[in-house]
Amino acid sequence: KWEEIAERLREEFNINPEEAREAVEKAGGNEEEARRIVKK
């Protein structure tokens, strides 16, 4: 599940997989929260 979210974030925000994974981890697997983290 987290991998899927990280993949979507990576494609959408054009970030590297590591950044995407970190955002999802910080968000506890919550996609909306992960998006907010990435946008900062």
Rank of each mutant, 00 (worst) to 15 (best):
K1L: 14
K1T: 15
K1A: 14
K1V: 08
K1F: 13
K1M: 13
W2S: 05
W2I: 07
W2Q: 04
W2R: 06
W2M: 07
W2V: 07
W2F: 10
W2Y: 08
W2K: 06
E3R: 09
E3P: 08
E3Y: 09
E3G: 11
E3D: 12
E3N: 12
E3V: 13
E3H: 15
E3S: 09
E4Q: 13
E4A: 14
E4V: 06
E4K: 10
E4Y: 05
I5M: 11
I5H: 01
I5W: 02
I5Y: 04
I5K: 03
I5A: 05
I5L: 14
I5S: 03
I5V: 12
I5Q: 04
I5R: 02
I5E: 03
A6M: 11
A6I: 15
A6S: 09
A6P: 01
A6G: 04
A6K: 05
A6T: 08
A6Q: 07
A6Y: 07
E7F: 05
E7N: 15
E7M: 13
E7H: 13
E7R: 14
E7Y: 01
E7Q: 15
E7L: 14
E7T: 15
E7I: 14
E7D: 13
R8H: 06
R8M: 07
R8L: 09
R8Y: 01
R8T: 04
R8G: 05
R8K: 13
R8D: 04
R8V: 05
R8E: 03
L9M: 05
L9E: 00
L9Q: 00
L9S: 00
L9D: 02
L9R: 00
R10F: 06
R10P: 02
R10Y: 08
R10K: 14
R10C: 09
R10W: 12
R10A: 15
R10G: 11
R10I: 15
R10V: 14
R10D: 06
E11Y: 08
E11M: 09
E11F: 08
E11C: 07
E11L: 09
E11N: 11
E11W: 07
E11K: 14
E11Q: 12
E12I: 03
E12R: 02
E12Q: 04
E12A: 03
E12F: 03
E12T: 03
E12V: 02
E12W: 02
E12Y: 04
E12C: 04
E12M: 04
E12G: 02
F13M: 13
F13A: 10
F13I: 06
F13W: 03
F13E: 09
F13G: 05
F13N: 10
F13V: 09
F13T: 10
N14M: 08
N14D: 13
N14A: 07
N14L: 10
N14C: 07
N14Q: 13
N14K: 08
N14Y: 06
N14V: 05
I15H: 03
I15D: 07
I15C: 13
I15Q: 05
I15E: 07
I15A: 06
I15Y: 03
I15W: 03
N16Y: 07
N16K: 08
N16S: 15
N16D: 12
N16F: 08
N16G: 14
N16T: 15
P17K: 12
P17G: 14
P17A: 15
P17C: 15
P17I: 15
P17R: 06
P17Q: 14
P17L: 15
P17M: 15
P17F: 15
E18H: 12
E18P: 03
E18I: 13
E18L: 11
E18S: 11
E18K: 07
E18W: 09
E18D: 14
E19P: 03
E19F: 12
E19W: 09
E19V: 13
E19S: 11
E19A: 14
E19M: 12
E19L: 13
E19K: 07
E19N: 06
E19D: 13
A20S: 07
A20Q: 01
A20E: 01
A20G: 03
A20V: 04
A20L: 05
A20Y: 02
A20N: 02
A20I: 06
A20H: 00
R21H: 10
R21Q: 11
R21C: 03
R21D: 06
R21S: 08
R21E: 09
R21F: 13
R21L: 14
R21M: 15
E22V: 13
E22F: 05
E22Q: 14
E22H: 13
E22S: 13
E22L: 14
E22D: 11
E22M: 14
E22R: 14
A23E: 01
A23P: 00
A23Q: 02
A23V: 08
A23T: 05
A23C: 04
A23G: 03
A23N: 01
A23R: 00
A23M: 06
V24E: 03
V24H: 01
V24F: 04
V24M: 06
V24A: 05
V24T: 06
V24R: 00
V24C: 07
V24N: 00
V24S: 02
E25D: 10
E25K: 12
E25L: 10
E25W: 03
E25H: 12
E25M: 10
K26Y: 05
K26W: 05
K26E: 14
K26T: 08
K26M: 13
K26D: 03
K26R: 14
A27Q: 02
A27Y: 00
A27T: 06
A27S: 08
A27G: 05
A27V: 04
A27W: 00
A27K: 01
A27F: 02
G28D: 12
G28F: 13
G28H: 13
G28R: 13
G28Y: 09
G28A: 12
G29A: 03
G29H: 03
G29R: 02
G29M: 03
G29K: 03
N30Y: 06
N30I: 11
N30G: 04
N30P: 00
N30V: 11
N30D: 13
N30R: 07
N30F: 06
N30T: 04
N30H: 08
E31N: 03
E31G: 03
E31S: 05
E31L: 15
E31Q: 07
E31F: 14
E31M: 12
E31Y: 15
E31W: 14
E31D: 04
E31T: 04
E31I: 12
E31R: 04
E32R: 10
E32Q: 13
E32S: 11
E32W: 06
E32V: 10
E32G: 08
E32K: 09
E32Y: 06
E32H: 11
E33Q: 09
E33T: 10
E33K: 09
E33W: 01
E33M: 10
E33H: 09
E33V: 09
E33N: 07
E33L: 10
E33I: 10
E33Y: 02
E33F: 03
A34Y: 00
A34W: 00
A34G: 02
A34Q: 01
A34V: 02
A34H: 00
A34K: 00
A34T: 02
A34D: 00
A34P: 00
A34N: 02
R35K: 09
R35L: 04
R35S: 04
R35I: 09
R35N: 04
R35W: 01
R35V: 07
R35G: 03
R35A: 05
R36T: 09
R36I: 12
R36E: 11
R36K: 13
R36P: 01
R36Q: 10
R36F: 00
R36W: 00
R36M: 09
I37V: 08
I37T: 06
I37H: 08
I37R: 07
I37Y: 02
I37M: 06
I37D: 05
I37S: 07
I37N: 08
I37G: 04
I37P: 00
V38K: 02
V38R: 02
V38A: 12
V38S: 04
V38T: 04
V38M: 03
V38I: 15
V38Q: 03
V38N: 01
K39N: 13
K39S: 14
K39M: 11
K39L: 08
K39I: 15
K39T: 14
K39E: 13
K39W: 01
K39H: 09
K39Q: 14
K39G: 13
K39V: 15
K40E: 15
K40Y: 04
K40D: 12
K40Q: 11
K40I: 13
K40N: 15
K40S: 14
K40R: 14
K40F: 04
K40P: 10
K40A: 15
